[in-house]
Amino acid sequence: MKVLVAVKRVIDYNVKIRVKPDNSDVDLTNVKMAMNPFCEIAVEEAVRLKEKGVATEVVAVTVGPKAAQEQLRTALALGADRAIHVQTDERVESLGAAKALAKVVEAEQPELTILGKQAIDSDNNQTGQMLAALTGRPQGTFASAVVVEDGKLKVTREIDGGLQTVELALPAIVTTDLRLNEPRYAKLPDIMKAKKKPLDTKTPEELGVEVASRLTLVKVEPPAERQGGVKVGSVDELVDKLKNEAKVIS
């Protein structure tokens, strides 16, 4: 079966972000960018399905600026067979991304589409669910295990308080949680080979979708800083402070 995997270019996981002095947004100039960590897990899962002989082809897709090609090349180096770049310089929110992805799903007809559960920039946690709704496909979100069985998909989901298992009709949409797998690193020869793999570029206009965000970003501020308190010297002092100063225990 064909697997489509969506990736997003975001600020690198380890970079401490700065808010622009005019509070218009987060400052991304000269900041290291990378593939969203949950998307890395999505790519890994797709590649493992191919290695197991379940998937026959893995297609990576992104919606974003020209530079997002780097993340598609990373996906190709990790084992995707080809890539599709929906190129736009608009500020794309989840709904726009889901609309563009829905057009790609319509054209490619993958049996399984895998996305990260959320991007670490906007922290929206929406695109996979929106894509499922727009394509009329069932969804297995926050997946910690994915098994293809008798033409159906069994997805174990990380839910509040534990795990839930659902069975989905194929074609379906899955979003990844942290424990689904541990992504591999790309090897140098694979990075070289990835440069020769096919990468198609399309525009939202060609797909017939409007991807620009409709939400207005009024301002972006740093969060209120929490002030550190005191160090206590002993357990007795700690218990005393909690009882008599903070009054949070009795």
């Binding site: 401490k16 972000i17 808010v19 987060v26 670490i120 939400l215 970003l217 009024v218 972006v220 501020e221």
Partner: peptide
């Protein structure tokens, strides 16, 4: 909150 709570966005929806 955005960016893991390292920034707070004020957002308006039309």
């Amino acid at each position: 909150p955005i960016y893991a709570g390292n920034a707070i966005a004020t957002v308006q929806s039309p």
